[in-house]
Structures are given as structure tokens and as C-alpha cells.
Amino acid sequence: MPATAAPSDATFFIVLNAGSGHTDRDQRRAMIESVLRGASRQFQLTIVDEPDQLDQIAQQMAQQAAAAGGVLVAAGGDGTINAVACQAVTHGCAFGVLPQGTFNYFGRTHGIPEELDEAVHALLRSNLYPVQVGMVNDRVFLVNASIGLYPKLLEEREVDKKQFGRSRFVAALSALKTILSPHRRLRLALEVDGKVYRLRTATFFVGNNRLQMEQIGIAPLQAALEDGQLAAVAPRSKGKLGMLWLLLHGALGQMGRLDQADQLATYSFKQLDVKVRTLSRRRKIKVATDGEVTHLTNPLTFRVLERQLLLLKPDPAG
């Protein structure tokens, strides 16, 4: 889609998550401030020290960005980016990203450098592009949303990361441990385009990220994202190998192609309704959105948000 030139004097309102990244927060803050001051760019930077402060601080910064015609910027991993992007969508302000997480799917997909100083320099020379936003009930997701085994995997991965450190190797070992442990299968009723499907699966995964779909290796799902849809994939009740491949290659950043596609159920859609049949309508269900686990009301509605996010990112040719 065509780019819109970003105002060269727009103020950056930066939300920096102290818990993201591999370097000290003061080092990261100093680097961001040095680059922006060197470019004579106006900015306001707020550090989030406690995770439960993130939504409130992001909301406050979004309000200021919208009032000033500025750019709301998230400095953190995909979970931080999700929380800040939600406020950018709500308040209608432009959005920028300084990726600082373990996998950085969102930033990598849009050509944003993972090195902090390079990312800040890229922010200064970027233009605005519309980016597709996914919704599950009232929650935004930019990368993926899922139910079943994957939210459990994320919770256990966070515990292991606190003990053994943040790395893709630790994440992969933690995932293996979770997958090989006993777990229940979901009984789902899916409705898409007026058709109802019954499915038993350990996990149901909805993607909104081209890079992940490339790694899963199912070409129609990748094409669906390019066509303004979301893509869903779930291992069938038989075939642990398909589930293992999906979680390790699609959700955990390991490279490879999926050769067991017959063991997977796949769907592409603008809107899909999912009822977990083993739960009552009033029960809450764990849902992971961009790596953060929350509880939403069953049934779930996954859909493409009509109002797209305006993302400040480097031009594809540059």
C-alpha cells in the first residue's frame, strides 16, 4: 500500500519497557536520547518499570501524542508493542516501534532493525504505512492469538526465562517440556462464512504476521495475510508431530518448512467465531495475544479490524 510522508517535526512519545531487551534500561534510554537529540528531534520518553503500569502509561502517552499530532512509539518486545499499538488504534495516532524482545516478529516483518541505535535512526527516516490489525473479542493482536496449549506454553516459558535467562534456546527447551507434558485437547465449534466446523485440537493458532506464516510453510495462509485476511492453523487430534512442528517453527521462531500439512486444519477469513464446547458460555478462557496471556469470554470472535494502524517504518526499497 502507498506510504504517507511522516511530518519531519512530529514529536515522538516513547514508551520504554524496562523489562525488555538485553541491555540495561539506562543504557537504552541514553542511546535513544542521544540519537534523537543529535537529530534535533523533539521527544518525550517514559520508562515502564512495573508490567502492570504499561497500559496506563501507554494510554497517557497516546492521549498526548494524539493531541500534539505526534507519534506514539513502543520500545520493547511484541507484548509491549501490542499494548502500545492498542492505544495508538484507540486514539488514532501514528505508531512507531523500537524492537527489544526475544523474537521481534512485528519489527522484523516490517523491516525495522533489531539493533536499538539502528532502529532509532530508521525511525527518523521512515514513512507511514497502513498495517493490518487483528482482534479477538476486544483484544488487539498484531502477530498472533491462540488458545489451548500455546497460552500454557507462554506462561511456563516466562517462568523458565526468569530462572535461566531470555534467549531463543531457553524458549525452545521450555516449549519442548510443555508439549511433552500431559495436556487436554479442545473441542471447538468454528463458524466462518456461514459454515460450521467441528475440531478437536491441543491448540488453535490465529496468525496476523507474514514472517510466522512463512516459517510455518503453508503458502495459502501467507497469501491470505497479503489479501487482508487472518490465517488460522490447528493440529488435528492425531499427529503430535504436526503440533510439535507448529509450535516450535511457527510460534517459537525456529526456521523450517512444514511437511506435515495433512495433519493440520487451516482456515483463512475476515471473521471467525470459535466456541470452546467443553466450557459454558459464561466461562472465561485463556487467550494469548502477541505473547501475553489474558482471559476472555467464550465464545471468541476473531476478526480483521477495519481501521488500520498507521506504522512508521522504513520504505521497502530503502
Rank of each mutant, 00 (worst) to 15 (best):
F13Q: 08
V15I: 09
L16E: 13
L16S: 13
T23I: 02
T23H: 12
A30K: 14
V35W: 05
R41W: 07
Q42L: 13
Q44F: 11
L45W: 06
D49W: 08
P51M: 03
P51T: 03
Q56L: 14
Q64S: 15
A65M: 04
A67I: 02
V73K: 04
V73S: 09
G76Q: 05
G79V: 00
C86D: 12
C86M: 03
Q87I: 02
G92L: 08
C93Q: 05
F95K: 01
G96L: 10
L98C: 11
Q100K: 00
F103Q: 03
N104L: 01
I112N: 02
P113T: 06
V120S: 08
A122M: 06
R125N: 14
R125Q: 15
R125I: 13
S126F: 06
G134L: 01
N137A: 12
D138S: 14
F141I: 01
Y150W: 11
Y150D: 15
E155H: 04
G165T: 05
R166I: 04
R166N: 08
A171V: 01
L173M: 13
S181L: 09
R185W: 06
L186V: 07
L188S: 04
L188A: 07
A189G: 14
G194H: 11
V196T: 15
F204W: 06
L221G: 07
D227Q: 02
Q229T: 00
V233I: 13
G242C: 09
M243V: 06
L244F: 15
L248D: 12
H249S: 08
A251G: 10
L252E: 11
G256K: 04
Q263L: 14
L264E: 05
A265N: 11
T266L: 01
Y267G: 00
Y267E: 02
S268T: 15
L272I: 02
V274F: 07
V276E: 14
S280V: 10
R281H: 15
A288W: 00
G291P: 02
E292M: 01
L296H: 10
T297V: 12
L300R: 02
F302R: 01
V304M: 02
E306T: 10
E306I: 02
R307V: 10
P314R: 05
A317T: 13
